[in-house]
Amino acid sequence: MVRDSFESSIKSLEEEVVKMIESVEELVIKSIDSLINKDVNLAREVIRLDDNVDKMQLEIEEKTIELIALQQPMAKHLRIIFSIAKIIIDLERVGDFCVNISKETIKIGKERHIKPLTDIPKMRDIVLGMLRNCKISFIKEDSSLAYRVGQEDELIDNLYKDVYTDVLMLIHEDSKNINQGTKLLFVGRYLERMADHITNICERIIYIADGDKVQIN
């Protein structure tokens, strides 16, 4: 009886993590959309929505502490609860990077883009794909999927290098490009960092599923 309610508490905790992942997905989509469309209002919305993600993190954290104190979880239960406590920190960071991107968007405002944004949407698509598969591997406790997701981090690294060289060239061409160029570099860097955090989450999922502590990449 008491155990049943413990197991259902874990279930609902997992559902909250899934919701948090979905909220972060929304932030990724909206932050890059607002950048591409120079939509300052949407960028402001991202900043507001991130407060919700922060709130979710605190609520989930509170519940993990409660479950540890009241149920003294062991084995799989312990791995799930402990890993969730770590996963939400990485998720929260991903949300923060979306906010950072939106702040750059607001600064760029209505300025003409110094280059067509081609690599940044590609990076976004990979980050989103990673997030979605990360969510699925979490729900299914599928460690091999989690492993594959983590490996996509490399694609992002390569795209970031492309953004970097592109922007560097533009800055060389015309020093007026320095201002926006550095902002676009930051955006690339933020996306690249998001992928790192998602990879951390994948490592946690593998620990939940198999009890193995792995370092992907």
Partner: peptide
């Protein structure tokens, strides 16, 4: 045993 038991029955 208490973090990553091998056997399902222990778990």
């Amino acid at each position: 045993i208490f973090t990553t038991p091998e056997d399902k029955r222990t778990e």
